[in-house]
Amino acid sequence: MRKAMPHLLLAALLALVAPLASAEVRELQWSDLIPQGAPPPPPPVALHDLSQLADALAAESGPVAPQQSPAEPVVEALDGIRARLPGYIVPLEISEEGRVTEFLLVPYFGACIHVPPPPSNQIVHATSELGVKMDALYQPFWIEGPLRVEHASSELAEAGYRMDAQKIRVYELE
């Protein structure tokens, strides 16, 4: 039940907000950041033949495969819109007053150990003039502001989303 709450809330908020400010702020889901036609990631191959177990284990101890393709496809249409997105803040820069002025917004907290980190199109690199005071890393926030889509100009350049987070609000379950 609790898990359904955010979706209900989102739906309710959308219903409220959509007619009022449809031209203004667009509320995004994390899945909106992945292009429709993007090929799904290859499923993990099940290992049936136990005689190959040794090879599989050897691969484990070998060099790590590049965990995600560095430049996942992005939705170009989102460039320039004013968006609102919920997520967790991973602080990058902290001002002297203890405010986080630059951060990565990710869809789930405490990633990074059991599973590979989120792909580049599931991370928003945000900057904030005023900054946000954080008490705990596991506190979700709404961030709102103009979204910019960076293109992968070369093989190495990272494509991804950037946002000038003009409004940052604590995400609350109600």
Partner: peptide, 26 residues
Amino acid sequence: SRIATFTLQREINQHAGEPLLAVLPG
């Protein structure tokens, strides 16, 4: 690119050469 931070962090933490730890200062 700061978006690459997680990717490289994981790569360092799983470095086969020797056990390493990478942390984001923030």
